[in-house]
Design a binder for these strands. Structure first.
Lengths: 253, 253
DNA sequence: TCCTCAATAGTTGTACTACAACTTAGGAGA
DNA sequence: TCTCCTAAGTTGTAGTACAACTATTGAGGA
């Protein structure tokens, strides 16, 4: 029997998180190379045939990965010419449409990220939470309130609510103390998609402690995260202190 | 000589704007079918072989289109099973990462959209404008200030600046009186990508007239639009009155 | 010398075929 | 009735061939 395709053996080494299809893995690896400034803005990346040789995969697989990167606005494919790095400076690191943890984004920008948990409790769902998580109000949820800091300065206050049905006791403890994304990843419940609303808010009621800005001005990200099978896993509001965190969106046709 | 592939003859009819590759056209057409609720949320769309037969294109082309829609968060492809409509309700209509004119979005949501021009002038570029548009400060720019209304109510104030080098006198007139996107489209200078920063702003200095909100609270979209060849064509700040316009972002891995 | 334009090599786009990997439903067997 | 296996159906990857487009080169003429 022929060797399984899914057990990858890239010439270019892959990180630990080798999940998803081959094309997804190639896409993730190429994205890292791009964000790592292997090529500078406007530069032409290797052709599809050469990339296929580098990764030891078919050209179809490379093309799938490249089209995905183009949709995300990272590269620019020109018929008959090649694929070029989109000129967006370093902003892609903070791209809002890429689903990643805030702390990880802060770290990748070269700062020290911390999460300070203010409260953590398991209780029954509120009406809005039940609606967002597609559960009944009788169901239990894990509600956590945290402040996110970069280099000791508060950049956001977050109010998150998890569906406990999807969690294990060990994961609940881990979420309360560290990154939620990492904890969910350990039980293969990593969200793959989120729907987010954005609002401008001015309020003195948000947040706590000395990290609260005098202006009371926040950018509110109200979002629901979904698993691959389409079921919601966590919902929450994150209040970003205006000016502390730059939000970038790449808009494409 | 064989018939040109680019002269399409879909079984499924295409709109007038038949631009881009075959896969792009199929993607746009499929997106319209999705937003038109041809399939309900969670439903399975036809398989790749059947879609290829419907559109009379190769399966490769269908796959390219479907992957693009998946990256945009409109569908959900599952290996060995099929592609399913992502359950995001009607929110996709106002998706922020889709590059389209505000007025068109308002109209598609079933409201009456208008643009009221307050001022329009050709002058030299400011420092920031020259930087954004990658031109010198000696170059001329078209600066326009407008209010955007939905059903007669102001939803946003916009301050836009165009690179006049890329425009014709006729287009300048057309931009001043109507939709910029439509005018740019007429000379094949339709932007295909934009980089946008989002900010929360509270100010009494923004906007004019009775449409100015008492709270002075805005969601600021500060963006630069790029052509296919990578050169910037227009930059501008749009101040959305908080609460009048719902911003949705689909976040994916 | 400079410009124009045709030839050409290189790259992406599409078509077609074949098979691997996965999902789902249905039937055989206990 | 339940479990497990089989089979059919679907997406994922491989490979080849050619069409369509881009960019470069260089020959020819003004």
């Amino acid at each position: 029997m022929r060797k399984k395709i899914t057990s990858i053996g890239f010439q270019k080494n892959l990180s630990k998180e080798t999940s998803g299809s081959l094309a997804d893995q190639v896409r993730d690896h190429l994205r890292k190379r791009i964000l790592n400034h292997e090529w500078q803005a406007g530069a032409k990346i290797p052709g599809e045939f050469e990339l296929a040789a580098q990764y030891k995969v078919a050209r179809v697989t490379i093309r799938t990965a490249l089209r995905s990167l183009e949709t995300q606005g990272l590269i620019d494919i020109r018929h008959g010419s090649g694929a070029y790095i989109a000129d967006f400076g370093d902003s892609v690191r903070a791209g809002l449409q890429e689903l990643r943890s805030i702390t990880q984004t802060i770290r990748e920008m070269g700062h020290k990220a911390e999460m300070i948990t203010r409260s953590s409790e398991v209780r029954k769902a509120t009406e809005k939470e039940a609606l967002d998580l597609q559960i009944t109000q009788e169901s239990g949820v894990l509600h956590i309130e945290r402040a996110i800091t970069a280099d000791g300065e508060v950049v956001a206050f977050s109010y998150d609510t998890f569906n406990v049905e999807e969690l294990t006791p060990a994961v609940i403890r881990r979420i309360s103390t560290g990154s939620a994304f990492a904890a969910l990843d350990s039980i293969r419940k990593h969200p793959v998609r989120a729907r987010a609303e954005i609002h401008a808010i001015s309020s003195k009621e948000i947040g706590w402690g000395r990290g609260r800005p005098p202006s009371g001005l926040y950018l509110l990200l109200r979002q629901v995260h979904y698993l691959r099978n389409g079921s919601p896993i966590v919902t929450g509001d994150t209040y970003f202190v205006e000016g502390k965190f730059q939000f970038i969106i790449h808009r494409t046709i």
